[in-house]
Computed example of a mutant assay.
Amino acid sequence: MDIQHHPDDELLLALASGQLAPGMRRVLYSHLELCPACRERVQALNALGGQLLDGLTPADMGDDALARTFARIDAQAAAPARTITASAPPPLPAGARWPRSLAHCEATPWRWIGPGMRWSRVSLPEEPDANVFLLRIAAGKYLPRHTHQGTEFTQVLHGRFHDGRALFGPGDFDAADGEILHQPVVQDGSECICLASLDAPLRFEGAIARFFGSLVGM
């Protein structure tokens, strides 16, 4: 797999230090599954973080620290297990697979949002309100031109799109914010399937696009 677009070191450091929200973390982990280079960078950052922790002065723990820890373990053990249900989206095309980072999540069936365009809502057990979804768009189709009110992480699972900045293919990762105005266009030859997470709605150009975007939480 020829991966051309990767998360920068700032994002990988945020991941290694536990600073990313669950939805963003799941998308970024889906990139690491496919990218040995980024996995090595995260491992190096984790090792560096461990060295920094070893150099810190130990802090005193509260008298009830052990009891609270066991209480949290008991609470997690009692919680019902959640897995991807039978209503998960259909299998991906040959050569593609669902990310392991979506294990224990629930996904809706593909839903129509326009000619040649479908989407699936992904629910995370640790944060049900996280805005995570899958997009499945046919060759030659495109998303309306838009920018971002917050941050969007996108991981390409299958196919290719060009958004006016660059060509993104299988395994590629993109982080977009309010400084980016683009229109992803799926390239000929295959549909494109992406996993995405938003921390704020997109800002579409045009009233119709804004209306349909609001219906799916985009």
Rank of each mutant, 00 (worst) to 15 (best):
I137Y: 01
C105W: 01
V122D: 15
G114K: 04
A96W: 00
A139S: 08
G114N: 05
P128A: 04
S123M: 11
D129L: 12
T108N: 02
P109F: 01
W119V: 08
P128K: 01
G116M: 03
A107T: 05
N131W: 07
R100T: 14
L124C: 09
T108F: 00
A103F: 07
L124F: 04
A139M: 05
R97N: 09
R100S: 14
D129K: 13
W98D: 09
P99L: 01
R100M: 11
G95A: 05
L135S: 14
L102V: 09
L135N: 15
W119Y: 06
L134K: 06
G114Q: 05
W98R: 07
P125M: 01
A130R: 08
R100W: 00
P125H: 03
L124V: 05
I113S: 12
H104S: 14
S120W: 00
N131R: 11
L135P: 09
R118E: 13
M117L: 13
R121L: 03
S101T: 09
A138L: 06
P99T: 03
T108I: 00
W110R: 04
S101V: 06
A96F: 02
L135R: 12
V132M: 07
R136M: 12
S120Q: 02
P115A: 15
V122Y: 06
R118H: 13
S120T: 03
P125F: 01
R100N: 12
S101K: 10
I113M: 13
I137N: 07
A130D: 15
G114H: 03
G116F: 00
R97T: 13
R121S: 06
V122R: 08
E126K: 15
A138T: 09
I113A: 12
E106G: 10
M117S: 12
R121F: 01
H104M: 11
P128D: 02
L124M: 08
R100F: 00
E106A: 09
A94R: 07
S101C: 04
L135I: 08
A107D: 07
S101Q: 06
W119H: 10
F133G: 15
R100L: 12
V122W: 04
A130C: 10
G114P: 04
I113C: 13
P128Q: 03
P128S: 03
E106C: 10
P109M: 03
L135C: 11
A107Y: 02
A139W: 01
A107F: 02
R111C: 13
N131F: 05
A107K: 03
G95T: 04
P109S: 05
D129Y: 08
W110P: 07
R121H: 03
E127M: 13
A139C: 05
L102P: 15
W112H: 13
R97S: 14
R136P: 11
W112T: 12
W98F: 10
I137C: 05
R111S: 14
S123N: 11
P125Y: 00
A130H: 09
P125R: 02
